[in-house]
Design a protein around this nucleic acid. Structure first.
Lengths: 223, 223
DNA sequence: TGAAATTTGTAGCTTAGGCTACACCAAAGG
DNA sequence: CCTTTGGTGTAGCCTAAGCTACAAATTTCA
């Protein structure tokens, strides 16, 4: 109803109200755990009627998704000076952004983070997937794998690396961590810099089924 | 924040839109002179339709009044810890606030300040009048003059002093200035601290006409 | 000067948002 | 147990705000 993304410009009231609600949730998330927050509180802090909330979001979980998505776009996607072209420095920066997001973010919000962590995992990987896919589209893809496959694998690898690092109690500083894992991640993107095709296919699977089929299943839907 | 205290609660959309417009003007006033600002610009920066502007304000001059009034309330009225009871320290603080408002404020806005200065003069005096009147109401008024008269005279005296000081090119620091003029101003308020009636009446006028009649004419209308 | 471009202010219509009221559900708590 | 309490979600109505369009001023500039 109100959510229809039409080609015609969006009514400013819609943008404004959504922004108010998202920011209100952001404020409350610094004060109490998500589960303890009620729709009424969110609406009140947003100076918006509670009924209006439901005109924009199914429930508070849907708002949570919108909030984290915006945060991720701000802190990760928007920090890359310009998306194209690809460079190894940009890949390093991207990984660093994911790392700092993970450390900062959870510090901001009082636990428990029950439903929060799977959500941001999903969304960060989705964001990474989109960014990498943009790189792949603007470069000659000589890999034997499809761009979607490369993007998916790289996104998962990057997030996994950052996640593992962020969970380590006595972890090394980011500046040491990044050069250590970057080669593992960048190997998938060799096609972008030299035209050498990678070896993944012959290593992983002898037939048409296996890891690739699985990956295809779990590819992110656009946006 | 916004003052229309009707018995029926004000629609939140109204307060929000007014606040957006006022803040938009505040931003623009730091960038260019008031005369150079158009209604369209204000509305755009407020993320509000230009037509909506006219639903709230007659023209940009009326918005200017609202903006300055809010600023004055924030910087002066709201800085007094609690209005009552009266004390000489509070009077000194009040004068200091007026001084710093005058110096800060004009620095923020690019000249020319043509219509601006008479406006803030009127509004600051009005604010002072209200504050002083509150003091007078909560204290035994033993003066021969009416509270309105005392409040008016004191407000004018305070603003006049602060204005003269702020216009002096090589002025002394506020901390020296305030003790110098405060006795002149406070004399009107003696009735608040001791019950000695002041001498103004016998000094100023021999009959029923004269300064008092003039003052009565120029008393501020409530809000 | 006089035409073009802005800006101003208003009218009429459409839509988002505010409000009341209500049904539903779940968690206390007597 | 059943009542209270508080959060959830929806329906219907009313109002504020958005949009288009247009008729004046007003400013700009050739």
């Amino acid at each position: 109803m109100l959510l229809a993304k039409q080609k015609t410009k969006e009514d400013p009231r819609i943008t404004r109200t959504r922004a108010l609600l998202i920011n209100a949730l952001g404020g409350l998330m610094q004060e109490k755990s998500f589960e303890a927050i009620t729709v009424g509180e969110i609406a009140q802090r947003a100076t918006v009627n509670r009924v209006t909330f439901y005109a924009h979001f199914q429930d508070k979980y849907e708002l949570l998704e919108a909030w984290t998505r915006q945060l991720i776009r701000e802190k990760i996607g928007a920090q890359l000076p310009q998306p194209n072209p690809f460079s190894e420095e940009k890949l390093a920066l991207l990984l660093r952004l994911v790392c700092s997001f993970l450390t900062d973010f959870l510090g901001h919000c009082p636990p428990p983070h029950g439903k929060l962590e799977p959500l941001i995992e999903k969304q960060i990987k989705s964001e990474l997937y989109q960014i990498i896919l943009t790189w792949l589209r603007s470069a000659p893809a000589k890999s034997i794998s499809t761009p979607d496959q490369v993007a998916t694998v790289t996104a998962w690898a990057m997030y996994g690396a950052a996640w593992e690092w962020s969970q380590t109690p006595k972890r090394e500083p980011v500046d040491e961590f990044i050069p250590q894992v970057l080669p593992l991640i960048a190997s998938n993107l060799q096609a972008l810099t030299h035209s050498k095709s990678n070896q993944v296919h012959t290593r992983q699977s002898a037939g048409g089924s296996g890891a690739y089929a699985l990956l295809r299943q779990f590819q992110f839907s656009p946006n």
